[in-house]
Design a protein around this nucleic acid. Structure first.
Length: 490
DNA sequence: TCTGGGGTCCTAGGACCC
DNA sequence: TCTGGGGTCCTAGGACCC
């Protein structure tokens, strides 16, 4: 199934993309929302739309739109905050179905993945097939896959099949929603040529503008322009990459199991932060969450990054690279705090973020690395390095970690993700629209809304008809948060 | 009621080293 | 004595993607 230049002769790469994924999961889980506009995203004053159902898109609502604007466009939609545990459940099922077709699955996000069918059970048959029958086989496999996904999750997926990642991705976009498109080997240029430059992944608003100023608006224009001009306009890497894509050349392999290269956590505040101490406190909180995820992944990091978005939306980062990787909350918090002192926060801070990069595989128990770090710190101290002295004081001070950050140093094994554990229940009772709940008498349901001491719950499950609404006091002891139900009975 | 959160990759300048 | 030149690391920012 490769020609003598190593190019595929069968469109055996598929790109799968779930349709309006988050919103579709909500509709599958909540029968009363099926066929209705649903908007998932941040519900606060500064939230944006994460996903809009196709019903909501008809009103002009789309991803990344400010939630306030979405409410104006489509006031009757259901506005829900996300339920990531539920999305992961469905995603896991979908990814498992993909892996039945080939071990070579490259997830791009919860709802998107490439699959190389050549490497799977259909590989031999595809290898024996000519271009025509090969394409037929790929279509059959893809339709079977979509049917399986629908049966097992109740969700629709769109699939593109082609001889390269680029064309498979473009094909799945054309297939949306709930469709399948195959780009025949050899027809790549014809498919690409009339498309606007924005159709190519990697061309966003800025690049589009640059190209437009040079008179380049279609992919055919890019191909005709030639590599030289594109490098001139866009720089070495981007220019050559875009040119390769424009002429339909893409031999990138499907690669599974990419290790994360950074871990970060950020928060936008409802009201800008002005107080120095408050800012430092938030940095401690963010650090605790970041470290929680770092440790959960069994990693440590060497570079600490602080991100600050100011009142005027100007965004800057400050980073510091340590002498050795760490997952020590105190060290990371101290570093982030030190970085915070370098930025002018007068006027207010809209967003803070704490991240770690230059990741290494090592865990808290890696005493050798800790010892090495401490020794190096001492050397630095002896050499009179300012930053070194500060850290060397922290590294061995394991016991101080618990005392350091408020909410920091969560007891291991409490809440996943390192959330603050021990708040009184009355304070934790913040009911979010969309959230799964269970009532002692009425059973499973979800929060439709809350306010003025009351919470409204709709009692329904993915398996039954639309349910009835009831209202309770927010601190009703019979009402509890619940885990998401599977979309299909198990 | 203007603009999330979690990532990836690239560029460019300065430090530092050989 | 007078601008070499390349490689690598660090830092900051920007574009892009989902």
């Amino acid at each position: 199934m490769r020609d003598d230049r190593g190019v595929r002769t069968v469109p055996s790469i598929i790109h799968l993309d779930m349709d309006a994924f988050f919103a579709a999961v909500e509709q599958a889980a909540k029968p009363s929302l099926r066929g209705k506009p649903v908007v998932v995203g941040g519900l606060g004053g500064r939230g944006v739309v994460s996903t809009a159902s196709y019903e909501a898109r008809r009103f002009g609502v789309h991803s990344a739109m400010p939630m306030a604007q979405a409410r104006r466009l489509c006031p009757n939609a259901a506005f829900l905050s996300g339920r990531f545990a539920a999305y992961r459940q469905s995603s896991d099922i979908v990814m498992a179905l993909l892996r039945e077709r080939s071990p070579l699955v490259e997830p791009l996000s919860l709802d998107e993945a490439f699959v190389d069918l050549e490497a799977g059970p259909y590989g031999p048959a595809l290898a024996d097939a000519g271009p025509q029958t090969g394409a037929q086989l790929v279509l059959a496999v893809a339709e079977d896959l979509r049917a399986d996904i629908l049966e097992r999750t109740g969700l629709t997926a769109s699939v593109g099949a082609a001889g390269s990642k680029l064309m498979a991705k473009i094909a799945s976009e054309q297939a949306k929603p709930d469709g399948l498109v195959l780009v025949e080997i050899g027809s790549e240029r014809a498919v690409l040529s009339p498309m606007p430059v924005r159709a190519l992944p990697g061309i966003g608003p800025a690049t589009e503008q640059t190209l437009r100023r040079a008179g380049l608006t279609t992919v055919a224009d890019l191909a005709d322009a030639g590599e030289g001009e594109l490098v001139q306009l866009l720089g070495r890497a981007h220019g050559t990459g875009i040119h390769m894509m424009a002429v339909g050349h893409d031999e990138r392999a499907v690669v599974p199991d990419r290790d994360a290269k950074s871990v970060s956590v950020e928060d936008t505040f409802e009201v800008d932060l002005a107080d120095r101490d408050r800012i430092l406190h938030e940095i401690d909180q963010l650090t605790a969450r970041c470290v929680g995820r770092l440790r959960a992944a069994g990693r440590s990091g060497r570079t600490v990054v602080l991100k600050v978005r100011r009142f005027d939306f100007s965004t800057l980062t400050r980073s510091e690279t340590l002498r050795a990787p760490t997952d020590d909350e105190t060290v990371i918090a101290e570093t982030a705090r030190r970085l915070a002192l370098q930025v002018d926060t007068t006027g207010g801070v809209r967003l803070l973020g704490v991240g770690v990069s230059q990741l290494a595989d090592y865990t808290q128990e890696d005493l050798f690395a800790q010892a090495a770090q401490a020794a190096e710190a001492q050397t630095a101290q002896a050499a009179g390095t300012g930053a070194g002295t500060e850290e060397s004081a922290e590294v061995p001070a394991e016991a101080s970690a618990g005392a350091a950050g408020a909410g920091g140093a969560d007891a291991p094994g409490t809440a996943p993700g390192g959330r603050a554990p021990a708040e009184p229940p009355s304070v934790l009772r913040r009911w979010l629209p969309g959230q799964d709940v269970h009532h002692a008498e009425h059973g499973p349901g979800w929060v439709q809304g809350s306010g003025v001491g009351r919470v409204t719950v709709r009692f329904e499950t993915p398996y039954g008809p639309p349910g009835r609404v009831r209202t309770f006091a927010v601190d009703d002891p019979d009402l509890e948060p619940a885990d998401p139900l599977p979309l299909r009975r198990v």
